[in-house]
Nucleic acid binder design. Sequence first.
DNA 1: TTGGAATGTCAACAAGGCTGACGTAAGCTG
DNA 2: CAGCTTACGTCAGCCTTGTTGACATTCCAA
Lengths: 170, 170
Amino acid sequence: MSDGRMAQVYRGESLLFLTDEQLRQGIEAMFFAYRGFTADPDRILGEMAYGRAHHRAIHFINRVSGTTVNNLLAILGVTKQSLNRVLRTLIAEGLVESRVGTIDKRERHLFLTEAGHELETRLSDAQRARMRAAFRDAGPEAVAGFKQVLEAMMDSDMRNAYAKMRGNTT
Amino acid sequence: MSDGRMAQVYRGESLLFLTDEQLRQGIEAMFFAYRGFTADPDRILGEMAYGRAHHRAIHFINRVSGTTVNNLLAILGVTKQSLNRVLRTLIAEGLVESRVGTIDKRERHLFLTEAGHELETRLSDAQRARMRAAFRDAGPEAVAGFKQVLEAMMDSDMRNAYAKMRGNTT
DNA sequence: TTGGAATGTCAACAAGGCTGACGTAAGCTG
DNA sequence: CAGCTTACGTCAGCCTTGTTGACATTCCAA
């Protein structure tokens, strides 16, 4: 696997981007950029008793309003115990509402309350501001490439979840 | 900050990528892609008693061989206590060597041992394989855009660290 | 020589992952 | 109806990885 180190370089300019050196740059760019990506919401959350896990839950409850716990579990890719701890505090503090399902009463459907929406807005405004600046600086073509590469980096199940997210505005 | 929601959309096609909807997609793509990004090394590390923090330390000790602890601290962006715990186990298990500085004896310079290099190779091979597949699928122009957006998303200090990383092959 | 920088270590703590086990309510199926 | 399965919650315990605070050591530099 560590082969092909230099092999591709000489096949032409068009394959320069597959050099191990280029790949390493991509890896490190991902590492540093992800820190920037989470920095602003983290700062806001740090002021309260919440963490990144709460942000993720709030984000996707907002995105897929009325989602069941099981569905949220699948999106977030954590265990129900882990999610439950976060959900419990969010419900207790009145940011999330859990309604028993009408068709299937075993299910709980999750919604943001008014307070929940407020926090969600604060968090995504901060995160979007940085993303917007980055998008603006890089330009539309770069943004298209950005999304293409990210999508290609996902597992098939993540890609499914992401695809679902893309269509759904409910 | 939550303004401008729809404002830009109507200014023309060229600003479509700055829609809140587009930004949200970018945010979610980042979230899912980062999971994919770390999935393969995490799987390898899970077999051993190591975690993602060990991977990061090993990666950058390999990249900036002979780095001081302080410098590594700045790159990783964690506290010295947090890093120290990780370094201690890596040194104890013979993956990293810590040499007292010759010029400034207060400094410790960090190097990978033979065993350290082996693990580093296993980990980056796995991570590079996915990155390579993503790069190949997306093509060179997308890759250029990918890097542009990521770089624009960093803080200035991260960007400095990343820039240093880009030049240095030592 | 003294202050400060670089490093390390101990202790305590919290967030947020994980597994395993168990309970309850509700739906489904033979 | 009886019994299995599903959805959800919860308790207990463990791990990694981050944090602060306090303190010791070593050594450079003014």
